[in-house]
Design a protein around this nucleic acid. Sequence first.
DNA 1: TATTGTTATACTCTATAACTATA
DNA 2: TATAGTTATAGAGTATAACAATA
Lengths: 158, 158
Amino acid sequence: MTEQGRGLEDPPGAAFLLAALGSFATCRFSERAATLGLTPPQIGLLRAIAATPGQSQQAVAELLGMPPSRLVGLVDALADRSLVERRRNPDDRRLHALYVTDDGHATLRQVAAIGREHDDAVCGSLDASERAQLRALLARIAEDHGLTPGVHPGYRRL
Amino acid sequence: MTEQGRGLEDPPGAAFLLAALGSFATCRFSERAATLGLTPPQIGLLRAIAATPGQSQQAVAELLGMPPSRLVGLVDALADRSLVERRRNPDDRRLHALYVTDDGHATLRQVAAIGREHDDAVCGSLDASERAQLRALLARIAEDHGLTPGVHPGYRRL
DNA sequence: TATTGTTATACTCTATAACTATA
DNA sequence: TATAGTTATAGAGTATAACAATA
């Protein structure tokens, strides 16, 4: 998506810079994720399952703010690669509890590694104190708008 | 697009916060743009034409980093609403020079207004000095990566 | 009848490549 | 033949709604 803020010559506002750099960062992260054969949504789901193991697909879909039908394809892709597994609940066979496998946890460690590389690549021009400052400012904004920590808001409906 | 950075519980890195807040900001800006009947890409194009009047479609497409074929539909939409116009070059009738009309300039003033509202809504929890600090940090990162000032990078190929 | 997960369908956005008109 | 713009086609990603299985 291409979005403009103000004048091409005027100093852009913080919100426009946020949108532009966010798009840039997402694009770059997507490239790194591809080296693991994963897409950003797949990684988001894998991490969500690891954070809340044993939840139903509907519960995880709710946490991530996406329709359950979308989750199905994402879980399929991760399950095909044995990174997660669905376990039927014997007490209520409608429910599919989601778990990360050992392979999935190993992949999550690789994900953490590319996340650090990504962070260094994006914020390379800032020293440690500046990066902490940036993190603090961004975290304040995110909290102010009620964003779930660690969850990408995607383009969920309001 | 949904992207995860690190753990849902670990403090996310600055790059992840950037992606998450950028997506959030884009979504919110898109809503404001809709009140003008415009999409973010249309606004980006309108602003680009205003910044470089009389350029060919190919030149503007190059500036924005999109294929010329994509520009056609965007220009059509803006031209249908008389916000921009194509003027054929009599010396080389293949060229369509792009100009913003008076209506287009009036719309750009409305765009500037919603841009300010948007900036206030997104950064409302920061005081003026913090917002300036944030802008400075983000501008450094953007410059470090060679982003064209005032132009949203979209998802252009590398 | 209500709920979980799944599938089917349709729609939006975009890129690639073919096409036209001018040169 | 080469270039500017346009149109056609196809693919990715996603939401909505219909459906099947289970309660």
